[in-house]
Amino acid sequence: EEPWTQNQQKLLELALQQYPRGSSDRWDKIARCVPSKSKEDCIARYKLLVE
């Protein structure tokens, strides 16, 4: 798996703010905001960050 770039991390953080918990299809929308990362990548990264 490719490491996360600073840019991808920033895009993930912005998308998390844009689509708060409870948004419909939240992770699909977030993944579309982060180039070359899947929905599963984004969820895994999020879990890593909040632990």
Rank of each mutant, 00 (worst) to 15 (best):
C33L: 13
K37N: 00
S24V: 14
R45P: 01
D28K: 15
I30H: 02
D41C: 06
Q17L: 11
S23P: 10
E40F: 05
K39A: 09
E13D: 12
C42G: 02
D41F: 01
Q8C: 07
R26I: 01
K29T: 07
Q8L: 03
Q6M: 14
L49S: 15
Q8H: 06
R45G: 04
R26A: 10
A15P: 01
I30W: 01
L11P: 03
R21G: 13
D28V: 09
A44G: 06
L48E: 09
G22A: 11
Q8W: 00
T5F: 02
S23L: 13
E40Y: 06
Y19V: 08
A44K: 08
L12H: 01
A44M: 11
Y46N: 14
C42S: 00
K29W: 05
L14G: 10
D25H: 15
Q8I: 01
T5P: 01
V34L: 06
W4T: 01
P3V: 09
W4F: 05
L48M: 14
K10E: 11
E13A: 06
D28R: 11
Q9W: 03
A15L: 03
C33K: 07
L11N: 15
P35W: 05
A44H: 03
V50S: 09
R26N: 10
S24M: 12
L48F: 14
Q18A: 10
G22R: 06
L12M: 10
K47E: 11
G22N: 15
P35F: 03
A44W: 04
Y46E: 14
R32G: 13
P35K: 12
K37F: 02
L16K: 02
E40V: 08
R45T: 02
E2N: 08
V50I: 12
L49K: 14
A15F: 02
R21Y: 05
W4Q: 00
Q8N: 03
W4P: 02
Q18W: 09
W4D: 03
V50C: 13
P20Y: 02
S24K: 13
G22K: 06
C42K: 01
Q6D: 14
E13K: 10
D25W: 06
K47N: 11
Q18S: 10
P35E: 09
R21L: 10
A31S: 12
Y19W: 09
C42N: 00
C42R: 00
L12V: 00
L14A: 13
C33G: 05
N7G: 12
V34I: 15
N7C: 14
C33E: 13
R45E: 04
W27H: 03
E1R: 02
I30S: 00
E1S: 14
T5M: 04
I43L: 11
P20D: 08
E40I: 07
P20V: 04
Q8K: 01
Y19Q: 03
Y19A: 03
A44D: 05
D25L: 07
S24F: 03
D25T: 07
D28S: 13
R21W: 04
K10S: 08
K10L: 11
N7T: 09
V34K: 03
T5K: 02
K10V: 12
S38P: 01
P3D: 15
K39R: 11
S36V: 08
R45F: 05
E13F: 04
I43D: 02
L16T: 08
P3K: 15
Y46F: 10
R45M: 14
K29N: 12
L14K: 15
L11W: 06
L16P: 00
R21H: 05
K29A: 11
A44T: 06
L11D: 07
E13T: 06
Y46P: 02
C33I: 07
K37G: 00
E40P: 08
Q17I: 06
R32K: 14
L16G: 03
L16Q: 04
E13Y: 09
K47M: 14
L12Y: 00
L49P: 07
A15K: 02
A44L: 11
V50E: 14
C33D: 10
Q9G: 06
L49T: 14
Y19M: 02
W27I: 04
S23C: 08
N7Y: 10
E13H: 03
E1K: 15
K39I: 04
K10G: 08
S36P: 13
I43M: 15
K29D: 03
Y19D: 03
L49M: 13
Q6A: 14
W4R: 02
G22Y: 04
P35Y: 06
Q8M: 07
E40S: 09
R26Q: 08
K29P: 06
W27Y: 01
C33S: 13
K47V: 06
Q6E: 15
L11F: 12
E51T: 05
N7D: 08
Y46I: 04
P20S: 07
P20R: 06
E2L: 01
A31I: 01
Q17E: 11
I30V: 10
N7W: 12
E2I: 14
S24W: 09
E40G: 10
Q9A: 03
C42F: 00
Q8G: 01
D41P: 00
G22P: 06
S36T: 11
S23W: 05
E51D: 09
K37E: 00
P3A: 13
Y46Q: 14
R26G: 04
E13Q: 08
D28P: 05
S24R: 12
P20K: 15
K29G: 05
S38F: 01
Q17N: 15
D25E: 12
